[in-house]
């Protein structure tokens, strides 16, 4: 498989002088197309900052991120928006659903952005949300909300699905269901998945595991013995 995402010498710090804090201190790795990549690390390891930079929301101090050969640093604000619009799907720990739209409409938010979206009804069925599609987010459980969030991300049929601690706020059982869904998306739609988590157990379902600590890559492993999400245990 060819390299789809390339991270090169990525550095990022916050603050000045004595309060300066280096969050990313020269990070290098690549991710292949269709790969399920897990960024693993404790709190403060820089994984969310890294995700923001990959998402074109934040910019590095030095180094670069390249997607399919296109460097993000060369892109204008408009191009970055187009990049997110056409290539990225986002799943957050706290779902970030739009509170005044119902389930179906929240998924349509993603579909609207895509040139070749998946069928919204089909996604709703896949996610097991048929009975809830006219409910507002505040009428759903955390797991249901996260399903909607995944639906909104995958309905775009994105090249990369970015998941920021998607199970962070969920219980064990629901977490496994959500992980299975993400796994399904990876398999079914061949989306590249980049998932930020601090849950070590999740690495077993990934193709590629990158362990971060103190702003650098500590381990960069390819997992040959993937196990399905449903079999994970923690």
């Amino acid at each position: 498989m060819e390299n789809f995402l390339e991270i090169k010498e990525l550095k990022k710090s916050f603050g000045n002088g004595e309060t300066k804090q280096d969050v990313l201190r020269g990070m290098d790795f690549t991710v292949k197309k269709g790969e399920f990549c897990v960024l693993l690390g404790p709190s403060g390891s820089g994984k969310s900052t890294l995700l923001n930079i990959i998402g074109g929301i934040d910019t590095p101090d030095s180094g670069y991120v390249s997607i399919n050969g296109d460097k993000l640093e060369d892109m204008s604000e408009k191009q970055l928006t187009q990049y997110r619009r056409k290539h990225l799907g986002y799943v957050f720990q706290m779902y970030n659903l739009i509170p005044n739209l119902n389930v179906k409409e929240n998924i349509e938010v993603g579909a609207y952005l895509s040139d070749n979206p998946l069928d919204v009804e089909e996604v709703i069925t896949t996610l097991g949300l048929q009975d809830h599609k006219y409910k507002y987010p505040n009428q759903l459980s955390g797991g249901q909300q996260q399903r909607v969030s995944i639906g909104r991300a995958v309905v775009k049929n994105p090249d990369i699905l970015m998941c920021d601690e998607p199970t962070g706020a969920l219980d064990y059982k629901t977490s496994k269901e959500i992980l299975s869904l993400i796994e399904d998306c990876n398999r079914k739609y061949n989306s590249t998945i980049i998932m930020v988590t601090h849950n070590e157990a999740i690495k077993y379902m990934a193709d590629h595991v990158i362990k971060l600590r103190d702003g650098v890559v500590r381990h960069n492993d390819i997992n040959d013995k993937k196990i399905p999400a449903s079999e994970l245990d923690w």
Binding site: G55, I57, K78, T81, Q82, Y83, R84, R85, K86, L88, Y90, N96, I98, P99, N100, V109, G110, L113, R152
Partner: peptide, 15 residues
């Protein structure tokens, strides 16, 4: 009231 939603749709790629 909708700052978060606006921020969110921006991330998703809304212009």
């Amino acid at each position: 009231k909708n700052e978060n939603a606006i921020s969110m749709v921006k991330i998703l790629g809304f212009k």
